[in-house]
């Protein structure tokens, strides 16, 4: 992007390498995420997309390279600093990862009551109601996660991160396993979160419709490196066969059967 140098960078990754035993997943990854933008990361399953956001959130340690998030190098800061940084990062898991043994209310109260101990019960309840209204599910407040549908679980998972008013959102496959109508609702929610909470996001997805509708830029991760980064149109005007296969499959073009 032409004006990328003028924009504030919230995530900056340089030369990131990560291996699991003899399997190399990320090989010298370089990427920037700018303030207020949504970056969609596309790539094959097992290609290291989820590993990338787990490294950004400090769940995994990089083997080498620099991972700078909101001015802090995540693998170099102390535990206390990492906990403070994590309060500014929201992570929406592919499986939603709601706490099974807690109601929706308790799920939402959990991060707030632990990290903002100065808040009264009334303030926590108000924050829960606000965030449930934002994701459009105020009626589920006393339900258990097992009583919710896949789309509802995803929304509550996003609400649980929004309650901390994060500056960065990391979405891991937000539309995976959902029907097309629910996918559209989740895509709209991602855009709504970007606008109302002024977040910068990384959206890990295979779903090109999701990438096209929710992201300002798209990056394609293949064989441990970013092949290309740019707007959706720029990336998919590429002649690279691997990128074309992605596009053709998602937008129902004729393709050879294997």
């Amino acid at each position: 992007m032409s004006n990328s140098k003028d924009r504030e960078t919230v995530i900056s990754i340089r030369g990131l390498n990560k291996s699991f035993g003899s399997l190399t997943v990320l090989k010298g990854v370089d990427v920037d995420v700018f303030k207020g933008e949504n970056l969609a990361v596309l790539g094959k399953s097992g290609g290291g997309k989820s590993v990338l956001i787990k490294i950004i959130s400090g769940l995994l340690k990089p083997d080498s390279g620099i991972v700078n998030v909101l001015g802090s190098q995540v693998d170099k800061i102390s535990n206390r600093e990492l906990q403070e940084l994590r309060q500014k990062i929201g992570f929406s898991f592919q499986s939603s990862a709601l706490y099974d043994s807690m109601t929706v209310r308790e799920n939402l109260a959990f991060p707030l009551s632990r990290n903002k101990r100065e808040l009264s019960k009334a303030e926590i309840n108000k924050a829960i109601e606000e965030v449930l209204n934002d994701v459009g599910l105020p009626q589920t407040i006393n339900q258990m996660p097992s009583e919710l549908s896949g789309g509802q679980r995803k929304r509550i998972g996003i609400a649980r991160t929004l309650i901390m008013k994060p500056e960065i959102m990391l979405y891991d496959e937000p539309t995976a396993g959902l029907d097309p109508i629910t996918c559209i609702e989740i895509n709209n929610l991602i855009l709504q979160v970007q606008q109302e909470y002024n977040t910068s996001s990384i959206i890990i997805t295979h779903d090109l419709t999701c990438a096209k509708n929710t992201s300002n830029r798209v990056a394609v991760l293949m064989e441990g490196q970013f092949l290309t980064t740019g707007t959706f149109e720029e990336v998919f005007s590429s002649k690279d066969e691997r990128i074309k296969t992605f596009y053709d499959y998602n937008f129902i073009q004729e393709h050879e059967t294997i």
């Binding site: 787990k54 959130s57 400090g58 769940l59 906990q83 403070e84 994590r86 309060q87 990062i89 992570f91 898991f93 990862a97 709601l98 706490y99 959990f110 991060p111 632990r114 990290n115 649980r160 991160t161 901390m164």
Partner: peptide, 8 residues
């Protein structure tokens, strides 16, 4: 993991 990323 969800607990850990929510700073608990």
């Amino acid at each position: 993991d969800a607990m850990e990323v929510s700073a608990t």
